[in-house]
Design a protein around this nucleic acid. Structure first.
Lengths: 211, 211, 211, 211
DNA sequence: TATGAATGAGCATTCATTCAT
DNA sequence: AATGAATGAATGCTCATTCAT
């Protein structure tokens, strides 16, 4: 996480640095992003960079944190009825959130995806701040099983990984199709893909016990 | 692909170099693998490396080729009934193959997965020999739709991406769980995950038209 | 051309680097000059080199630019009468300039000559700032023919090449004879060699039409 | 010079190696020619190369020797009247020889020129076998002065250098214009350039003493 | 002698990070 | 705190020459 010095900066400067970092990371991924370039884009002296951040991965962590917060913000902003959401409603909300994010700032989505798909990077960048996305999905599935929404045979840990991969792939599709606005039709198409999961995992009288 | 000089080498030496390369690539991925390290691990002079291979990506391509052949070998080795396989039987065979590969050499699986998940790398390494895994899955789905196995609403292109992500994730699970042998129970558990896809996508009289 | 960072350096350091480069290029030519050596001679870290210059050829271009400016400076410094110079007066001025340059810094002359004699290098180094020496000579000859100074049979393009070679050779002589000061006698001797060209090319009533 | 082993080779093999070397040297110059490439072109094992020649420059020296002999052969083959040739007749014979050489094998001309224009290379390659071309021209000029052909003011040593450069440049022109046959017209044009030297240096009653 | 693998010093260039003011 | 120069280990790759059979 950034040093005190960074937080003491005027907001506009902080913003400038952040934007530069997001641009660079989104365009090149973590490995191929250059401190030099971030420094250039944000017009700060190179020395300052290391006065604001411990190192490159420190800044990256910070960017991830920002993205995480943005996601949470979007998720909570989505209209949700009073009752608790079902598993697949939740996933649909996540897709909606992804779409919104792609519309608002596809760069964030890209960075975020790049991380999830890259285990060694996650290790290097030492993510602790947030429970892994897996954990969230796992508890979601557990709840679904408890209230009879999901089939008994569903294994929470394993399914969570699959669903994460599924959602990630969906996120990538959204991103790559969003050169600007996402049409309502496209939105529906993506949301419908959740059906695949729903039909695949939901409890059904006829054959559920059979597995 | 390697130069003549490489193929002229005694088998044990070729093996040593290949092992060193597989180790390095599996541990670090393509980008973070170092020619220096491969050269050190296999105890060959650096100059020799470039007498055997055009460059780093040439060696990588070669390793991928080895992996591809291994995969094919395993796939064809799997007991298959005479009739044509259904979509999900095919996917299950793929999982079986993945498991076998994880047992025989998890490093290969790791390298292989790393490639599928990395588009820019695929471009750089210029894989031609095999149709992209997407293409294979797409045609599989098309066939499934034609013979009524799959629901009408299934979109081949989009589903293919999801299934690829799904299978990749499955492959990762297999790999990470295989510190040694994979128990029969584990094997069943992984195979059962294909059910999720099956239930999710197969044609059903009652509600198919409803989508 | 050098980067900002180079121009921001203290003058003495800039001078040190420039001297090292000139030494290296004069002694070994462009191809055989080593960045390592320039770096060693000027006692700067190798990393700094690439913070000052884009690459080796960037530095070389810079050195050539310095030389070009030096030449121009010397040329304009030479006493010239008000009227326009004749062809051979111009060539003599060029010789005088060469002599002065050899006295002030024979290394520059050497580098400069090495370039003119090396077409592929010129291409690689992409000299644009100055028209090729050929062009200058060609237009000089054209003018000479127009005002009746030169014989009709003189072919501007071909003669230009010869004269360029001639001048280059002259330049080499001057350089090699100048271990220190050039005596007035030597100077006269070199200048007199232009007579050879003058007698050779000038218009003459008696036999000019005969060619 | 090549080792015994080379001369023991069958003539066709020697020829093959020589052709490969000439091709490579003509195309790339000495510095940029690769032993690897010569070895490849001539289909000999790399080890053999060093059994035939001391090193790269040894082969180069050998090629130069071949060229020198070819030149001599051509020169002596040119129809020469019984009386001794005048200075400029000699130069014209040399141009004729150059033209013939360009027609027979422009590669040889190219290699030969590349050497003359490159002092450090001459040093590295340690030419001893033949008197430098300068020496030949110097004695030519001396003779010309003795028999009154040339003006008194002509300095043999200096003029020799200029003439050498002149002839070299002429040679280059010939080479670059000879994509195949050289027309009679072109031939005449090149020969006429010797006039420039003739008019420039010959003794003349009217103004010779004036210089 | 023929063969082709072995060798390693050397090259231009990159880049995260530290230093000095 | 701001600034930007200093630093040097590392990287992929080349190539003349030597070695071993």
């Amino acid at each position: 996480m950034p040093k005190e010095t960074f937080y003491n900066l005027p907001k506009t400067k902080r913003k400038r640095i952040l934007e530069a970092a997001i641009d660079e990371f989104a365009e090149n991924g973590y490995e191929n992003s250059r401190v030099n370039e971030i420094v250039r884009r944000s017009s700060i002296p190179k020395g300052s960079f290391y006065q604001y951040f411990e190192n490159k991965s420190d800044l990256f962590r910070y960017v991830l944190d920002i993205i995480y917060k943005k996601k949470m913000e979007i998720m909570t902003g989505i209209e949700i009825s009073h009752r608790e959401l079902s598993v697949f409603e939740t996933l649909r909300v996540m897709v909606e959130a992804g779409i919104k994010m792609a519309e608002e700032d596809p760069r964030l989505l890209k960075i975020s995806d790049s991380l999830v798909a890259n285990k060694p990077l996650m290790d290097e960048v030492l993510i602790e701040y947030a429970p892994s996305s897996d954990d969230f999905i796992i508890s979601l599935i557990r709840r679904g099983k408890n209230n009879g929404e999901l089939a008994d045979w569903v294994d929470p840990e394993l399914s969570a990984k699959l669903i994460t991969a599924f959602m990630l792939s969906l996120s990538e599709m959204i991103r790559s199709s969003s050169n600007g606005k996402i049409t309502d039709e496209t939105r529906k198409k993506y949301l419908s893909l959740i059906n695949l999961l729903e039909y695949g995992m939901k409890r059904r009288e006829d054959y559920d016990s059979g597995m």
